[in-house]
Design a protein around this nucleic acid. Structure first.
Length: 442
DNA sequence: GCATGATCATGC
DNA sequence: GCATGATCATGC
C-alpha cells in the first residue's frame, strides 16, 4: 500500500483531507485488511484498526494526541439512525482516562485533557450489532473538532468541578450528573472486577473514570449548530444554572391559573397528566427560543408538586425495566444507573396556605454519593428478587431512597417473568419523602 | 397521610 | 403500538 505519503502527519488539514476517503465507506472497502481481522466485533477495535491500517500510523506514546505533530487526536465513534432518519450518537465519547493524581495538580489551560483533545478528528460509523466492525460504514463526514468558543466556558467549568471534587478527596463520589457537557463517566469493568484507583486527597479507593463528552453534546455536534438562540451569549448569564433560573424567575410565585393565562395553556381535565410538565416546557422555550444547552447537557427535567408540608404529592418514576433483561445486567449498564448519574432540573410547584398551587422555583440537582449507593442496593435487591419471585419487589418502606412499583398502560400491560408468568410491568421510583428531603438540601 | 396499586395522555 | 412521565385511586 502506498498510503505512507498520502498525507502529511504534521498537518491537521492534510489528515482531515485524507480521512475523507473513508466517508461513505467501510474500512474494509478502503484498505486491505489481514485475514481474520474483519470478523472482530469489539467496538474499540475499529479505532485502532483505522489508525493502523488506514492511517498506517503507530503513535509514539500514549500521552498526548495520536498525531502529536498535528496536535490532533483521532476518535472513532458509533452513531445510530433516529426514527426521523438522521443520525445520533450511540453513546458518550470517551476522551481520556482521568488520572486523579495528575488532574489534581493541573491547570485547565495546560491540562492533559486539553493537550490531548484540544483538536480531534472524529469519525462516525453506523453502529449495527450484526455487522463486523471493519464493515461498518462511515455514514457522516469526518469532523474536525476544536472546542468552540461558546462551549468552552461550560467545558472548563465542568473540568474544574471534577478537579474540585478530586481535591476535596471525593474522587470516589464523582458522577456524570455533576457536570454539563464534559462528564466523568465510569470506565472499565463493572462490579468488583477491577481494582480501585488511588486518589491524592483521600485514602478511599475510587472507581476508574474517564473524561467524556456526553451523548447529547455529541448529538449537538453531529446535528451542527443550528440554533442561534444561545442563552450563554446573553449578558449576565455566565452559567447554564443562572441562565435557566433567569428563565423561570419571572414566573416564580405565579399560580397555576396565572401561568395558564400567561403561557396560553390550560389543563384539559382531571386526567391531563402532562399539564405541569408542559407549563415548564413553555417557560423554558420562551417565545421562539429554546435552550440548546439543556439538551446538550442531557438534563433530566422533572416536575415536582409539593404539598403544603413540603413533601411531593407523588414519587418520581423512571423508565420501566424488563424482568428477563435485568437478570443478566450489571448495575452500571442499567437505565436506572444512567438516570441516577444524570443531572436533573427540578421544576417545583407548591400549594400555598390557601390551597393555591404556585410555581416555586427551578433547581438543578444530582444525587449525592451515599444515596446513589442506596439506589444501587435497591437495584441489586430487585435483580435478586426478580430471579426468585418477580411479584415480590422492594417496596417504599424498605429504603429511604427508592422502590419498585407498577408502571403500565393498564392492568393488561404485563411482561414475562423468569418464573414463566405474566406480571404487571414495573419501574424504579424515587420515594416522595426522599425527593422532599433532597429539595430541602438544595 | 402514606404506601401501594392502577392507569392516562402524549409523542414518537 | 409502545415507552414514558405523571397522576389518579384505594385501602389502611
Amino acid at each position: 500500500m502506498e498510503n505512507k505519503t498520502a498525507y502529511d502527519k504534521t498537518s491537521p488539514h492534510s489528515i482531515y483531507e485524507y480521512s475523507l476517503k473513508l466517508f461513505g465507506k467501510s474500512l474494509s472497502q478502503v484498505v486491505m485488511l489481514p485475514e481474520g481481522i474483519e470478523n472482530t466485533r469489539n467496538r474499540g477495535d475499529l479505532g485502532s484498526l483505522v489508525e493502523k491500517y488506514f492511517f498506517e500510523h503507530v503513535p509514539d506514546s500514549n500521552i498526548g494526541p495520536d498525531f502529536p505533530d498535528a496536535d490532533m487526536e483521532l476518535k472513532t465513534t458509533g452513531v445510530v439512525r433516529t426514527k426521523a432518519g438522521d443520525y445520533k450518537a450511540k453513546e458518550r465519547l470517551v476522551l481520556s482516562m482521568i488520572n486523579f493524581e495528575k488532574v489534581a495538580i493541573e491547570k485547565w489551560e495546560h491540562s492533559s485533557l486539553i493537550s490531548k483533545c484540544r483538536r480531534m478528528l472524529i469519525l462516525f460509523y453506523l453502529y449495527e450489532k450484526e455487522v463486523s466492525v471493519s464493515d461498518r460504514v462511515f455514514v457522516l463526514p469526518p469532523m474536525l473538532y476544536e472546542m468552540p468558543e461558546r462551549d468552552l466556558p461550560v467545558i472548563k467549568r465542568d473540568w474544574e468541578f471534577i478537579q474540585g471534587k478530586i481535591l476535596a478527596g471525593k474522587a470516589h463520589e464523582l458522577s456524570e450528573g455533576d457536570t454539563f457537557y464534559l462528564g466523568a463517566c465510569r470506565k472499565g469493568a463493572g462490579g468488583d472486577k477491577e481494582p480501585l484507583r488511588t486518589q491524592p486527597m483521600s485514602s478511599e479507593g475510587a472507581k476508574a473514570r474517564a473524561f467524556s463528552f456526553k451523548q447529547n453534546y455529541l448529538n449537538y455536534l453531529i446535528q451542527g449548530q443550528s440554533s442561534d438562540s444561545n442563552l450563554l451569549n446573553s449578558p449576565n448569564e455566565e452559567s447554564i444554572e443562572n441562565a435557566t433560573q433567569l428563565r423561570f424567575r419571572p414566573f416564580e410565585g405565579m399560580s397555576i391559573a396565572e401561568l395558564s393565562e400567561k403561557l396560553n395553556y390550560w389543563k384539559r381535565d382531571k386526567n391531563h397528566k402532562g399539564f405541569h410538565r408542559e407549563l415548564a416546557n413553555r417557560i423554558l422555550k420562551g417565545k421562539m427560543d429554546s435552550i440548546p444547552e439543556l439538551k446538550k447537557a442531557g438534563i433530566e427535567m422533572k416536575t415536582i408538586r409539593l404539598k403544603r408540608n413540603g413533601i411531593p404529592r407523588e414519587s418520581m418514576s423512571f423508565p420501566g425495566f424488563n424482568f428477563l433483561e435485568i437478570l443478566n445486567q450489571e448495575w452500571e449498564d442499567s437505565v436506572f444507573f444512567e438516570k441516577i448519574e444524570s443531572k436533573f432540573l427540578f421544576v417545583v410547584f407548591q400549594e400555598d396556605a390557601l390551597g393555591i398551587e404556585r410555581l416555586l422555583c427551578a433547581r438543578y440537582w444530582n444525587m449525592p454519593y451515599g444515596d446513589r449507593l442506596e439506589a444501587q442496593r435497591v437495584w441489586e435487591e430487585t435483580k435478586r428478587r426478580v430471579a426468585v419471585d418477580a411479584t415480590n419487589l422492594p417496596s417504599a418502606r424498605e429504603s429511604k431512597v427508592a422502590h419498585v412499583r407498577p408502571k403500565g398502560r393498564d392492568g393488561k400491560d404485563k411482561a414475562l417473568t423468569p418464573q414463566g408468568n405474566l406480571h404487571l410491568k414495573q419501574c424504579f421510583w424515587l420515594n416522595s419523602s426522599y425527593i422532599g428531603e433532597a429539595l430541602r438540601n438544595i
